[in-house]
């Protein structure tokens, strides 16, 4: 009985981060300007790499944060499973996707990426390894620092290793198109994985048992297509799911989720109770050494 010791690779990463002076972290650099540019001259580190253990029977995987998502996907597919992190770019790392905290276009079906995270080991501003959460699929042991880290842009701690919840690879995964009103599709279809609406037509992703996918495609007269539409990357808005039907202009909206992709830059919404958010940052990183220049609070 006793605490699991941290593996040497994580200890080395903690030493690299150190306890003094500004330091940044880089993953695949796909969202490196999000929340502001890293203060010029800041040295950057990268998280350890590699899939540590995939246990298909537990539906969990322990993976180092610097691992490219594509590598993780390949590894899991061998065991018939997946983790729907769904980054926009093949360069994205597991830790990067989590630090950015944006879900992919299958959020309607699989939920937010934060709900895939079971355990996080990270390096805090004092250069210490901190473990939060637990390795099992269910756990309420202590404060949920994992969710605090997801979407924190590396400003509270640098993610070193995570345990993620896996899903079985679906028997089939098929895209369709439909001219039916997207809200009607959302309420009529049972557990669609994605509905992307451009104001005129919808792309629908159905996954699961082949019989179910066929049954629903027939019932709603869906036309098979090769894949998802081109999704604009410049801007990203966040609306109430029920407001998607009222959108104007050029966009691709995730129906039932409320994320709207635009081809023009958009400003993030202001943070509610910003002082409280800033107090969390100040308490966990009093000298502001972690990813200086990047800001989560708007």
């Amino acid at each position: 009985m006793g605490l699991r010791p941290h593996p040497p690779e994580l200890e080395e990463f903690a030493t690299l981060v150190g306890s003094e002076g500004p330091v940044g972290i880089a993953g695949g650099r796909t969202h490196f300007e999000l929340g502001g540019e890293l203060r010029p001259g800041t040295r950057t580190v990268s998280a350890p790499v590699g899939v540590v253990t995939h246990e298909p029977a537990e539906m969990t995987v322990r993976v180092r944060a610097g691992t490219p998502v594509t590598d993780l996907e390949e590894h899991l597919a061998d065991g018939g499973q997946m983790v729907p992190l769904d980054p926009e770019s093949p360069a994205s790392t597991v830790g990067g996707v989590l630090a950015v905290g944006r879900s992919g276009i299958r959020r309607l079906g699989y939920g937010h990426v934060r709900d895939l995270v079971l355990e996080i080991t990270y390096v805090n501003s004092e250069g210490k390894l901190i473990r939060a959460g637990g390795p099992t699929v269910k756990n309420v042991s202590g404060f949920d620092l994992c969710r605090l880290l997801v979407g924190s842009l590396g400003t509270l701690g640098f993610i070193a290793e995570v345990v993620l919840r896996c899903h079985p690879l679906p028997e089939v995964s098929r895209w369709f198109m439909s001219g039916t009103d997207p809200v009607e599709l959302l309420s009529g279809l049972y557990r669609p994985v994605s509905i992307l609406w451009d104001g005129t037509e919808s792309h629908v992703l159905l996954e699961g048992a082949a019989a179910d996918v066929e049954y629903q495609a027939d019932r709603f007269d869906l036309t098979p297509v090769a894949g998802p539409p081109e999704v604009p990357r410049e801007g990203r808005q966040s609306v109430r799911a029920s407001q998607v039907a009222d959108l104007q202009g050029h966009f691709v909206a995730e129906v039932g989720v409320g994320v709207v992709h635009r081809d023009i830059r958009t400003d993030p919404p202001p943070t509610e109770a910003p002082a409280l958010h800033r107090a969390v940052k100040a308490r966990l990183d009093p000298t502001g050494r972690l990813n200086p220049g990047r800001e989560v609070v708007v």
């Binding site: 905290g101 944006r102 934060r114 309420v140 404060f143 949920d144 620092l145 994992c146 969710r147 605090l148 997801v150 979407g151 924190s152 509270l156 990203r236 966040s238 609306v239 109430r240 799911a241 995730e254 989720v257 409320g258 994320v259 993030p268 919404p269 202001p270 943070t271 509610e272 109770a273 910003p274 409280l276 958010h277 969390v280 940052k281 989560v296 609070v297 708007v298």
Partner: peptide, 29 residues
């Protein structure tokens, strides 16, 4: 309602509220 008696909203009903996920921290606390 925080211990000092002030009231804050954590999280939000839009898809991606900005800031840290204090909602997630509050759940289970």
């Amino acid at each position: 309602v925080l211990p000092d008696g002030s009231t804050v909203m954590l999280g939000g009903v839009t898809a991606e509220p900005s800031g840290y996920d204090l909602r997630g921290l509050f759940v289970g606390s």
